[in-house]
Design a protein around this nucleic acid. Structure first.
Lengths: 226, 226
DNA sequence: AGGCTAAGCGGACCGTGGTCCAGTTTCATT
DNA sequence: AATGAAACTGGACCACGGTCCGCTTAGCCT
């Protein structure tokens, strides 16, 4: 299996490393047919790079994903990798993009309790569990893809999740500072934290799950006995 | 002003980069007279390095703190910097060490409401505010000193803070999973998050402060009107 | 004082992320 | 089909973090 040829951000020319990267664009999740306008050769190379990266991960773990190694494995110049993905983080993120889109689609338009239709509290609870397990599955990659501190929270995909949480929160506790509260909730689902708790502190996943339910209950002032 | 000549971890020989770094040692905060046994020349160089690093920060910002630059500025070999501080992170952390110890001393043995004497809830509230403002003061350095994701939570100084929070929580909500809850609370004080909220989202500090009080109130099931 | 040894030193060396730009390819236009 | 410009390519190049190892030196022991 190889990672789909989709990505969340098209990189402008090159000269300038462009900061804003692109707005969240919550609404067109499953629509965009890959990179809209990408020259044929560019698209081909992109696919080869992603495939090569995936192969390298499978063989040598995330640490084996060196920009040079990927370029070599895809029989492409190093510059091309950087042009396409911006930096190492961009490449790793692209690898995660498929599942990120999946998750987004699930809670935006999927079946309840994750998707619309269930009461907000239910959705919020389900959301945390979903994120928790998704992260747990791809921990290494998630960890390695973590950008430098300053950008951790501004990444579009992270923003999208947080915005969704804020939206749910507003329906549950309209009087609270939901922006802030949503940040806290998201912070408690940080892959690095999950890694620490499960791998370094030895907590089982079900404890994190209970923790999430408890946390949500406390923050929203609802009841929960677990 | 230059950063005091203290540091939280003595580095073993060199050959092995030693993982465990050192236990939290919560109790001897103000006691240790700097590095206990350090050869005269080593101690001198250490001081010169810290001073040089501080100077570089003042002049060129954190980004200017290159290991080579520091070595050169201190008129010392590059290898010496690494031997003394392990890596760039260690150096940056050493720069922060003074204020970290200060904070620790304050909540372990200082006057209420931070120190013992005040009711736990009071202390917890004060604790968050203290951490908040301390981080805000040294944001750049705190950000730059943030280690790779996997170690973020295992750093002794972070552990110490979290343990303290857990202790307070146990007194306030004995039936809760205080370990987990304390992680959440600490996560909401993450320097990277503070940076994001204040510098990128433009939130004023007082809003974060209110947010903390509100968060504590909700988590502990106590009242608060702000 | 002299000598012994572990601790400390320093700078050459390496790998990796990231940049640059001259040359090449694609493709819309005619 | 020819053409021109925008987009893409590739590999030489750079800076920085980090390692290694032969040499020096502090500080103890006699």
């Amino acid at each position: 299996m190889l990672y789909a040829v989709v990505m969340s951000s098209a990189l402008p020319p090159f000269p300038k490393p462009q900061e804003p990267l692109e707005p969240p664009r919550l609404l067109e999740v499953e629509s965009a047919p890959d990179e809209p306008c990408l020259r044929a050769d560019a698209a081909r190379n992109r696919a080869r790079l992603l495939e090569a990266a995936a192969r390298l991960i499978a063989e040598h773990g995330v640490a084996g994903v060196t920009m040079e190694a990927v370029a070599a494995a895809a029989q492409v110049g190093k510059g091309t990798v950087f042009r396409r993905f911006g930096d190492r983080n961009g490449l790793l993120t692209a690898l995660l993009d498929h599942s990120a889109r999946q998750l987004q689609a699930d809670f935006l338009g999927g079946p309840p309790p994750l998707g619309p239709g269930a009461p907000p509290l239910e959705r919020l609870r389900a959301f945390g569990v979903a994120v928790l397990y998704r992260s747990a599955e791809q921990l290494d990659l998630q960890l390695a893809a973590q950008p430098e501190p300053a950008r951790r929270f501004s990444h579009p995909s992270v923003q999208a999740l947080r915005t969704h949480v804020a939206m749910l929160l507003r329906q549950i506790v309209p009087t609270a500072d939901c922006e802030l509260l949503s940040q806290t909730l998201m912070a408690s689902l940080d892959p690095a934290l999950i890694h620490h708790l499960t791998r370094q502190c030895g907590m089982p996943m079900h404890r994190l799950e209970s923790g999430w339910h408890d946390l949500v209950a406390r923050l929203t002032g609802t009841e929960w006995s677990g």
